[in-house]
Simulated scan of single mutants.
Amino acid sequence: MNRLAPILLLLFVQACAQKPWYGDLKFEGKIPSSLSEVSGMVSTSPSTVWIIEDNGNKDHIYSLNLKGQLIKEFKVKNAKNNDWEDLAKDDQGNIYIGNFGNNHNDRKNLSIYKIPNPDLEPGNKIEAEKIAFYYPEQKKFPPKKSELLFDCEAFFYNNGFLYLITKNRTRPYTGKALIYKIPAVEGSYEAELVGGFLSCTNQKFCSVTAADISPDGKRVALLGSGYIWLFSNFSGEDFTKGTQRTIDVKHRTQQESICFLNNNTLLIADEQSQTKGRNLYSYSLD
């Protein structure tokens, strides 16, 4: 037994020293513990991203380097974090904050905040313009369980419009997401329904939690908890009419944020959930 003890100890130490399993995702860095609920992310340079947190957190936007380290933060003025769920950017570098989380499908104050390119702003506060909107198909707040289609955690900017992909909360769960568009201009709007998308029927993994469009406008990526739905070869505003590729990244965490770093590289972040998450990952599409 005494001879076996050192061997068993060595095997135990080696097992503990093994690297964590991230599936097909490449681990890039750990996000600070103060930012445990990252819900949206957008890349504005080859070396940094901007992130937000969701309901119950500050009305702030934060810059991280690609190792997950905090670089800078702004308080967003004239903006309330009712439930911030995603970030998007336009061709001029303006950033849009999706204040449209709607878990119970009962909100009547859905909005998006537009701020100037934070990479160019001094100080620690930044002014926001408000884009208010509503879904004309929603008649009751909340609707019946089979029509809980009006939560949203995902959007992107393209050609002057913001495209919103809703998060399905129906019971029984159908996996259907609606796609709406609204002008990316300060004001109040009726969202226009432009399409729909059926992910899959496992509510734990198939609800859309984030979205982005590639810098060249040729790919749209939607995120679930461990899945990426990638669309290409589309024309017009309904990107789901193009070629769809479903990617299983083989890593199941609460993945809430996705963005293109470049045309071929995606960045993904997950929330802290018990001992897992609060990481920044990359995924190569090549």
Rank of each mutant, 00 (worst) to 15 (best):
residue 5 A to M: 12
residue 218 K to I: 03
residue 283 Y to H: 03
residue 58 K to Q: 12
residue 253 T to Q: 01
residue 216 D to E: 02
residue 215 P to Q: 01
residue 104 H to N: 14
residue 54 D to V: 11
residue 83 D to F: 09
residue 163 Y to V: 04
residue 55 N to K: 13
residue 63 S to H: 08
residue 135 Y to M: 09
residue 238 D to Y: 07
residue 173 Y to S: 15
residue 148 L to Q: 13
residue 40 G to W: 01
residue 222 L to P: 06
residue 279 N to K: 13
residue 266 L to R: 00
residue 45 S to A: 11
residue 99 N to L: 10
residue 171 R to W: 10
residue 250 K to L: 12
residue 9 L to E: 12
residue 44 T to L: 12
residue 85 E to C: 13
residue 87 L to H: 03
residue 104 H to C: 12
residue 276 K to L: 11
residue 268 I to Q: 06
residue 38 V to A: 07
residue 47 S to T: 09
residue 57 N to R: 09
residue 30 K to I: 13
residue 195 G to K: 01
residue 199 S to W: 02
residue 182 I to R: 03
residue 186 E to F: 07
residue 103 N to H: 06
residue 160 G to L: 03
residue 217 G to D: 02
residue 39 S to K: 07
residue 264 N to P: 00
residue 49 V to P: 06
residue 36 S to Y: 11
residue 267 L to K: 03
residue 21 W to A: 08
residue 31 I to T: 02
residue 89 K to G: 05
residue 279 N to C: 14
residue 282 S to C: 09
residue 230 L to K: 01
residue 73 E to N: 15
residue 4 L to C: 12
residue 31 I to N: 05
residue 174 T to A: 13
residue 240 T to G: 14
residue 101 G to I: 05
residue 32 P to N: 04
residue 242 G to W: 01
residue 128 A to M: 02
residue 238 D to G: 08
residue 11 L to Q: 11
residue 59 D to E: 15
residue 275 T to H: 10
residue 255 Q to S: 12
residue 206 C to T: 13
residue 32 P to F: 01
residue 264 N to G: 02
residue 138 Q to T: 08
residue 142 P to S: 11
residue 253 T to G: 00
residue 160 G to D: 04
residue 221 A to L: 00
residue 259 C to D: 00
residue 35 L to C: 04
residue 216 D to N: 00
residue 130 K to L: 12
residue 156 F to L: 02
residue 242 G to Q: 03
residue 64 L to T: 07
residue 231 F to G: 00
residue 38 V to Y: 05
residue 274 Q to T: 10
residue 7 I to L: 14
residue 29 G to M: 07
residue 3 R to I: 15
residue 49 V to R: 03
residue 3 R to F: 09
residue 266 L to F: 01
residue 212 D to C: 02
residue 97 I to R: 06
residue 250 K to I: 04
residue 152 C to H: 04
residue 71 I to N: 13
residue 222 L to F: 09
residue 188 S to E: 15
residue 265 T to P: 02
residue 282 S to E: 07
residue 14 Q to H: 10
residue 269 A to H: 05
residue 281 Y to G: 06
residue 37 E to L: 04
residue 147 E to T: 05
residue 43 S to L: 06
residue 116 P to T: 08
residue 202 N to R: 12
residue 74 F to V: 13
residue 282 S to N: 06
residue 147 E to V: 06
residue 190 E to L: 10
residue 223 L to Y: 00
residue 147 E to I: 06
residue 219 R to I: 01
residue 233 N to M: 01
residue 15 A to K: 10
residue 72 K to T: 13
residue 126 I to P: 02
residue 124 N to T: 14
residue 118 P to D: 11
residue 99 N to A: 15
residue 243 T to H: 05
residue 137 E to A: 07
